[in-house]
């Protein structure tokens, strides 16, 4: 109960316009600018998986598409999209926060009465979680599109209309839940890396490498936990 109260207390700060603005900016830079990259990767991934299943392992096209739906939504897309997000954005968040801290900007915010948790950390962590969900959904849908196009060619419209045979609601929800957890952890680790370096400019690059390495490690450990608890 105490944790929920604490979380609700912090989420209330989203009512403040400058906090929402930081959140929107984080989602924009993390999700919007990477969406094309993730979509193309997902499209190629879907086509490769279907080709492998059909050509190498002798599955029928119909079965290959069903396997792709399950594989992509439950395993590949949350992990791959989050990996790309960590590689691209965790370092940016960590460098930004570490630089702000070294330059005395974090202290200045505190002096002006702004909550560092509310203004700097919460919107970045939430922004990365929202971005992870958007990027995962983009990759999952693009992979299905790539797989369908490779498997069915000009008959793709038939497969798209029968999409529910490939996807189950439970898998879609699991996909989104995994992406949310990956985003939250990656965001929290990036913020921690940004705030844990020494107060000297030469230590700022260390924050970037810590954020990426710890973020990557956390994704795989979390994925393993999801496999165990599922």
């Amino acid at each position: 109960m105490l944790i929920f109260h604490h979380v609700r207390l912090h989420l209330n700060v989203l009512a403040r316009p400058p906090v929402r603005r930081v959140l929107y900016k984080q989602v924009y830079f993390t999700a919007n600018e990477a969406a094309w990259l993730v979509a193309i990767t997902g499209f190629a991934l879907g086509a490769i998986v279907v080709e492998q299943l059909h050509g190498q392992y002798g599955q029928s096209r119909e079965m290959a598409l069903r396997l792709l739906g399950s594989l992509s939504f439950v395993e590949l897309s949350p992990l791959l999209a989050s990996l790309m997000m960590v590689a691209r954005s965790s370092s940016a968040v960590a460098i930004e926060l570490a630089s702000m801290r070294v330059a005395g900007e974090v202290q200045e915010l505190e002096r002006m009465g702004l909550s560092v948790t509310a203004y700097l950390l919460l919107p970045r962590i939430l922004g990365m979680a929202i971005a992870a969900v958007i990027l995962t959904a983009t990759m999952a849908l693009a992979s299905v599109a790539g797989g369908i196009l490779l498997a069915s060619g000009w008959d793709a419209s038939y497969q798209i209309l029968a999409l529910e045979r490939m996807l189950r609601m439970q898998e879609v929800l699991l996909c989104l839940a995994k992406a949310t957890s990956f985003g939250l952890f990656a965001g929290a680790l990036a913020c921690h890396a940004g705030f844990s370096v020494a107060m000297q400019p030469s230590d700022v690059p260390k924050a970037a490498s810590r954020a990426v390495l710890r973020g990557l490690l956390a994704l795989f450990v979390l994925d393993l936990i999801w496999v165990i608890v599922r």
Binding site: P18, G104, E105, Q107, E108, M112, G113
Partner: peptide
């Protein structure tokens, strides 16, 4: 000390806008 990733205008309204 100004916040380096905000424009000057955003810097000068930030505390007022927040509070």
């Amino acid at each position: 000390v100004l916040i380096s990733n905000l424009r000057a205008w955003e810097n000068l309204i930030l505390p007022r806008w927040y509070h």
